[in-house]
Design a protein around this nucleic acid. Structure first.
Lengths: 162, 162
DNA sequence: TATTGTTATACTCTATAACTATA
DNA sequence: TATAGTTATAGAGTATAACAATA
């Protein structure tokens, strides 16, 4: 490959995101393994740091994974004492999920260890561009994840436009 | 979740990328299904548009997937007449892989159809920011995918720095 | 009756090992 | 002997269906 540009004609970010995320995930795996974490554990911990105390359902919706799989994910993390399930006093069906102190510090270590993975995967970008990318990703992921239902209804119209 | 920021303390893009790519993949799936494509097919086609004629090994290395899985991937795409395997005249062990005209136009349709998925997933970004993101992703993914071996050796030092 | 969480299970994706053919 | 591609197969990851407890 001689300086290839993946996806030029329609300028869609989809394939590029998939491509870059895969590279990052592969490199992250080996860095996270010594900490007993997998990439999806990292994402879950990261979400819980900001949204601690949410229910498993809400967590599933935020992570966009099936709620049945949240069970296993939390079983892993709880067994490692990184998160805690507390039966909600308001609604006894619910479990509120919290990051433990151990979990918070483990997450910090993980993010620290990820420096080398980023170094490699984002090597083509200079520090300023990496900051820019981080900021854009942060803003994009901060966006309301709840607008899915509304957006789906517009789908047909959008498709016709191009 | 009240305007959460996923990953603030160490400012690592890893979890954000994984998170955003997953959202994009999930939305892409339903958009691509009518075209008989899956997200990983799209990535493969996108790479082949720019690097047509490469061997299956090289494709595996570029896509960062195991070469055994390239077989099945290409079987799918070849059955749909989107790519073509040609026995290399120089080295008869090798298959050179090419995007067909059908493949190129199907890829165009797919990218077009992905507009709605992007609209939804990148909804928090304005058009200028989306262009900026696209450009950063394009540059990051254009970087040499061959430097893995070299970079791995530096790993230990980098880890110690933070 | 609807919802939260759980289990069991099937399906997809991916990786490992052994094989064929060319070099 | 080494490399390109293939097959078979086991392991993760994910989704679907049925169930228990609570609302």
């Amino acid at each position: 490959m001689s300086a290839p540009s993946v996806g030029q004609s329609e300028r869609r970010s989809g394939a590029l995101l998939e491509y870059l995320a895969r590279r990052m995930r592969l490199r992250s795996e080996s860095v996270l393994a010594p900490l007993g974490l997998r990439p999806r554990h990292l994402v879950a911990l990261t979400v819980l740091r900001d949204a601690g105390g949410i229910s498993q359902q809400a967590l599933a919706s935020t992570l966009q994974i099936d709620s049945t799989n949240v069970v296993g994910l939390l079983n892993d993390l709880e067994a490692a004492h990184l998160v805690e399930r507390r039966r909600s006093p308001e609604d006894r069906r619910r479990h509120d999920v919290f990051l433990t102190e151990t979990g918070a510090s483990r997450l910090g270590e993980a993010e620290c260890a990820l420096a080398s993975a980023e170094e490699e995967v984002l090597g083509a970008l200079d520090p300023a561009e990496r900051d820019q990318l981080y900021e854009l990703l942060r803003r994009a992921t901060s966006g309301a994840p709840a607008n899915c239902a509304a957006a789906v209804t517009d789908e047909a119209e959008l498709d016709a436009s191009c």
